[in-house]
Design a protein around this nucleic acid. Structure first.
Lengths: 212, 212
DNA sequence: TGTACATCAGTGAACGCGCGTTCACTGATGTAC
DNA sequence: TGTACATCAGTGAACGCGCGTTCACTGATGTAC
């Protein structure tokens, strides 16, 4: 890169060489996605939104799917941050686990279109997108870590920890997708209500875990 | 209708008037969906598969979304049957609830594309498709009924029952979508493995409920 | 039983659209000498 | 410091595709008389 020789040089957008088009494209895609939804997320649309020709993205992404994968990866980064942030507000291990899940649900209802892209079947084959797979795994690990802290000093088997993590993740992800797909009514998508529902439902699982 | 005057008359497909094209279109759509996936489910493709002109479906469905909604509705019908079938294999109320959930997960991994259409965001606005909404609700009620049988004679509040039903449904739906979207690895989609995983994860929730 | 006619359920050509992608190109940049 | 040149990062026109949908139509069917 090393594009700008002087710190005060003209903004990149005025130049023929953009300087950081790859990042700019992902940003434009995120905004477009929020505004137009998944079906509006097209290569041409993203290029248009970034103020660049339809062909410019091909210098940074092999094809449309590669761009979408980059968008999804940003989403998993943000989800991990959100969950980590949720975990940090809690004291006890059990509360940490619950707050991790609640944060994920809130993230989903606040970014429904992004959340859908993150779990899009088009990206299901993770061997095609190793970087995306790693980032998604890192997000899941926030849950897994919270679970293992809960099970703490008890000499539980590793496979049991994994199952508990999957169960926790499944409930949270299931609630998130039911909410954003309108299966629990339109009102439920309000972040406040969604949060309450997330607390109520995860209580059943997480208190159950404590009593185990 | 009353198409065939004689029981032994020629098959409908040879006639100008099909006789039962609406049903035939939904069947063709289900097969096409299974074969080509969600992106292959097009109006023209369905008409082609049913051996009829592109315009014929418009005599039975207002537009493409209406046909997709009919497909989704069939899916919810089958899901309800599958869950009911699962419930019937069990004796205790708790086992009934668990088997209901396990059956849903198995249904999803066996019909991933259909499952995706059923929960497609394009159909999220349920006020547009009241019949679909009712059928989806009927499927959910299998879970809700199983939950209320579990809570049985205990004088639990109705709102608690609703929360438990949502939590159960969320975990099962979450596990199903994680599986079919490849978030738990490709192998996990094998029905046998998926079933085991469904049993293991729901154990955590449903045993928790019993001990409540 | 025949017949006129309204209605139903199909056809087939065509339209406009936006898509992902190809192709050949050109302007800008960095570097070796 | 200048300059030649390879390379990088953009342009813009065009292609072919399949889509959902419109339009005007026609064949088949059911019914009233």
């Amino acid at each position: 890169m090393s594009r700008a020789k002087k710190p005060g040089s003209a903004p990149a957008r005025d130049r023929y060489h953009h300087g950081d088009l790859k990042r700019a494209l992902v940003q434009a895609a995120l905004e477009l996605l929020r505004r137009e939804g998944v079906s509006g997320l097209t290569l041409r649309g993203v290029a248009r939104a970034a103020g660049v020709s339809s062909m410019a993205p091909y210098h940074h992404f092999a094809d449309k799917t590669a761009l979408v994968a980059a968008v999804a990866e940003t989403g998993f980064d943000r989800l991990r941050d959100a969950m980590q942030g949720g975990a940090n507000t809690a004291r006890s291990p059990a509360a940490k686990l619950q707050q991790t899940g609640v944060a994920a649900v809130v993230f989903a209802v606040e970014n429904p279109e992004l959340y859908r892209v993150m779990f899009s079947p088009d990206l299901a084959d993770k061997t095609e997108h190793p970087s995306l797979a790693a980032t998604a795994q890192a997000a899941f690990m926030v849950v897994a870590d919270a679970v293992s802290q809960c099970e703490g000093r008890g000499a539980t088997e590793p496979s049991q920890t994994r199952t508990t993590a999957v169960a926790s993740w499944a409930m949270v992800h299931g609630l998130a997708t039911l909410l954003i797909d309108g299966q629990l009514g339109e009102d439920a998508c309000d972040p406040r209500q969604a949060k309450q529902l997330a607390v109520a439902t995860t209580d059943l699982l997480f208190e159950g875990l404590q009593n185990q």
